[in-house]
C-alpha cells in the first residue's frame, strides 16, 4: 500500500490526470493532494472569511475531481482548473450581493489583522531565508489584494498566483485581452502604491 502511494507521488502531473480520467481513484486522490494548495491559496486572496475559503476550496476540488474526464488535453489542466475557480468566485460574489450584510460573532478577521507578536516573528519553517517574508507582510498583501475592486482582484490572482497567460485570463473572465492587460497593469500599480512602505 505504501509502495503504491509512493509511486503515485512520483508520477508526473499529466500522468496522474490520464489515470484519473480512467477511473483510477488513487491517482485522482494524489492529483487533488497536489492541486489543493493552489486552489486554497487562490481563494485565500479572493475572499477573507476563513469558512468561505475552506468551503470554496472544497467545492472547487470536488468539481475538478467530478469533471476530470471532460478535460480534453491534460496540458490545459491549469487553465481549466482556474476556470472552475473563477466561475465559483463569480457565483460567490453573486450570492454575497443578494445576501443582507451580517456580521459574524465568530469572525476572526479582527484578530488576524492585528499586529500580534506571533505575526511579527519570522517564520522558522520558511526556507530558503531570502524567500522568507513575515506573516505580517503576508497578511498585509492578502488584505490589499482582497480590498481591490472586483475585476482587478481576480485578474491579479490568476496572473500572479496561477501564472495564467492574458489569453487564458480573458477566456476565464469573459473579457478581451486589452481589458485584461489594462486591469493587470492598474491592479499592480495600485498594489505597488499601497505596499510601497513595505517594499
Amino acid at each position: 500500500m505504501t509502495g503504491q502511494k509512493f509511486q503515485y507521488k512520483k508520477m508526473k502531473f499529466e500522468e496522474l490526470i490520464l489515470l484519473a480520467q480512467n477511473d483510477d481513484m488513487k491517482a485522482l486522490e494524489e492529483l487533488i493532494k497536489q492541486e489543493q494548495r493552489n486552489v486554497f491559496a487562490a481563494f485565500s486572496y479572493l475572499t477573507q472569511n476563513k469558512q468561505d475559503i475552506s468551503d470554496l476550496t472544497q467545492e472547487a476540488l470536488l468539481r475538478i475531481a467530478r469533471n476530470i474526464k471532460t478535460l480534453k488535453n491534460p496540458k490545459n489542466f491549469k487553465g481549466w482548473a482556474n476556470q472552475i475557480i473563477t466561475h465559483l468566485y463569480y457565483d460567490e460574489i453573486r450570492k454575497i450581493s443578494r445576501k443582507p450584510n451580517t456580521i459574524s460573532i465568530d469572525s476572526e478577521t479582527e484578530e488576524s489583522n492585528e499586529f500580534t507578536i506571533k505575526n511579527l516573528l519570522p517564520d522558522k519553517r520558511c526556507k530558503p531565508q531570502e524567500k522568507c517574508i513575515s506573516l505580517e507582510i503576508e497578511e498585509i498583501i492578502k488584505n490589499e489584494i482582497n480590498n481591490l475592486p472586483e475585476p482587478f482582484k481576480i485578474v491579479i490572482v490568476l496572473r500572479e498566483l496561477q501564472g495564467m497567460s492574458y489569453d487564458e485570463i480573458a477566456n476565464a473572465t469573459k473579457s478581451s485581452i486589452g481589458t485584461v492587460k489594462s486591469r493587470i497593469s492598474r491592479a499592480r500599480l495600485k498594489l505597488q502604491e499601497n505596499l510601497k512602505n513595505y517594499i
Partner: peptide, 20 residues
C-alpha cells in the same frame, strides 16, 4: 510570489480523502 508560496504552505487540511 513569496507571499503566495507562503500561503500555499499554510494549508492545514487535506481535502483529498473527503473528496474521493
Amino acid at each position: 510570489q513569496n507571499s503566495f508560496d507562503k500561503t500555499k504552505n499554510n494549508l492545514k487540511k487535506d481535502y483529498s480523502e473527503e473528496i474521493i
